[in-house]
Design a binder for these strands. Structure first.
Lengths: 301, 301
DNA sequence: CTTGCCGCTCGAATTTTTCGCACACAGGAA
DNA sequence: TTCCTGTGTGCGAAAAATTCGAGCGGCAAG
């Protein structure tokens, strides 16, 4: 279906070199095959086969057409497989683990877009500390996850990554927002809001950042990024985060993000992880493709 | 033709976002278009469009199919153009100029293969000295030509090139054939057969070769490469040529060719030339493609 | 030389597919 | 409501593809 029978007829005739043999394997009358071939030749205005005793052989034009036909049919088979995958993925359940920066903006928006095309898929999203995301995926407690790359990873593979440096987040009219980048000395002159948690995520990456965090007494400490976000908009102070949790506010112009003058944090990367061995279910496989696309598009912008 | 109407229907519906509009531009009834779309969706087992008020919009599966369809139709247009070119090239006349090394073996065989696919094409082949080939093409006295590259070339472009170093040609059982390469000192101990002509073709390339040619008194001098070839097989002496004129004899094992120990001649290249400005006729254009393919295949072997 | 076989081609009847028309149905706008 | 605009659906007509049967030319064995 979809593609005209003439394509299959032509391919089989070219393959077998004989109309009768082709008709036999196609389970149609030889005259039908013959007609289609004649029609093709009339349509192109040139012979597609040389008739010699014992069969047909392709002319140059015929070889060109054969290549077109085989390419088309192969491509169609791939398409059919892809659509079958899509159909299998129409419903199901996906469990996602992610560091909470992603949960505030990027992931909900991505899932909302995904929902349009796969309405029957359900999700379980759990916030976790960076190393826990990896262990959850490895243990099978999550299908896919977002976390910082560079963890010791066994049985987890990275699908896509983007640079996600830690920087200073503040209200858009904050004095520091006037600078292109900010060093720790400047930063220490303003009250700091920090996210509490078992282990500060960038601490093992950059010594200077870890030292700064130890030296400073936070004006506000909370494990709720929403709490910190509201405090930022009230100008209670500044905080240290990746841009990803504040995309919406930055775009609206409420919040500003500026890079930190520190070589270590600049190399921080956030990635989409999936189990290395285990096969993902159809909906998870589709979602992973989509999220990887989103990440790459985001990285390009 | 060739491709099912459903393809065009689907593409137009996707483009216009409406079955009725698509039907209007396709000059068919809307119901016909609708049916084809429904058939496609039934065949794939999934919706290709989301039905919303005011028209249709592609689903993910629909977008995959659209890409397949547009790719296929574009490729088909290219195919049609290529076949039209072929048809236009079925008959006509091509004039070729070439240095005579090519006329002995390579060119006649190539034209013989070409003749199978383009039986009605006629040819005029003229042997010429290397610089004359270029001027003939520039003047319009030849459609295409084979000669050594590196000529001062105005209004001539090179389609393909191969390395064609000058070496020593001799009978396969000649003493020199035991060596992998030969220098002028060794060569001077054997009688030389040379091709006469206004200007020895490699003379302006390599000083050592030119000096050798001046210093030696040829045992036989002829402007007929056939004469020289026969004399070689009778072991009258050795000669200096490109391999290209002796492919057949080398393959048969009658004649041997060994490279010359001289840096200049090693860089000699032979190329297929066509006019840079002027448009070639259809048969000449086809022939040029074939010859370029032949040359490249020969270079790879 | 005849006979049998194989392969392509052609014509007419038949089956399958497609099309056009009319209309039903649904949702938003005046 | 009525009037659009849009898709989906029967049904008879038209077009296209298929099958069957026959014919033509070439080749090889007898």
């Amino acid at each position: 279906m979809l593609h005209a029978a003439a394509l299959h007829y032509f391919r089989e005739v070219a393959r077998s070199g004989s109309i009768r043999r082709a008709a036999a394997t196609l389970n149609v009358a030889a005259s039908a095959v013959n007609r289609q071939i004649l029609n093709l030749e009339a349509a192109f205005g040139t012979a597609l086969f040389d008739r010699l005793r014992g069969g047909l052989r392709l002319t140059v034009a015929g070889e060109l057409l054969l290549r077109h036909v085989t390419d088309t049919l192969h491509d169609f088979e791939r398409l059919r497989a892809a659509i079958d995958d899509l159909r299998a993925a129409r419903s199901g359940h996906v469990t996602i683990a992610a560091v909470d920066s992603l949960l505030v903006d990027f992931l909900p928006r991505a899932l909302d877009r995904f929902r349009i095309d796969f309405p029957a898929v359900t999700y379980a999203v759990t916030a976790a500390q960076p190393p826990d995301v990896v262990t959850m995926i490895a243990a099978g407690d999550a299908d896919i996850g977002f976390t910082f790359v560079g963890q010791a990873l066994h049985s987890v593979r990275w699908i896509a990554e983007i640079a996600a440096p830690i920087g200073v987040v503040m209200r858009a009219d904050h004095p520091l927002a006037a600078r292109a980048s900010i060093d720790f000395e400047e930063l220490s002159r303003y009250p700091i809001l920090t996210q509490s948690g078992p282990l500060p995520k960038g601490a093992d990456i950059d010594g200077a950042l870890a030292a700064f965090k130890r030296s400073v007494t936070p004006k506000l400490q909370s494990n709720s990024i929403q709490m910190i976000k509201l405090s930022l908009t009230l100008d209670m102070g500044v905080s240290l985060f990746t841009r990803l949790g504040f995309l919406h506010e930055i775009e609206k112009g409420d919040i500003a993000w500026r890079p930190l003058d520190s070589p270590g944090v600049a190399t921080l990367r956030l990635g989409l992880a999936a189990p290395a061995q285990r096969e993902l279910g159809p909906p998870a496989a589709q979602l992973v493709r989509r999220l990887a696309d989103d990440l790459r598009r985001f990285a390009a912008a």
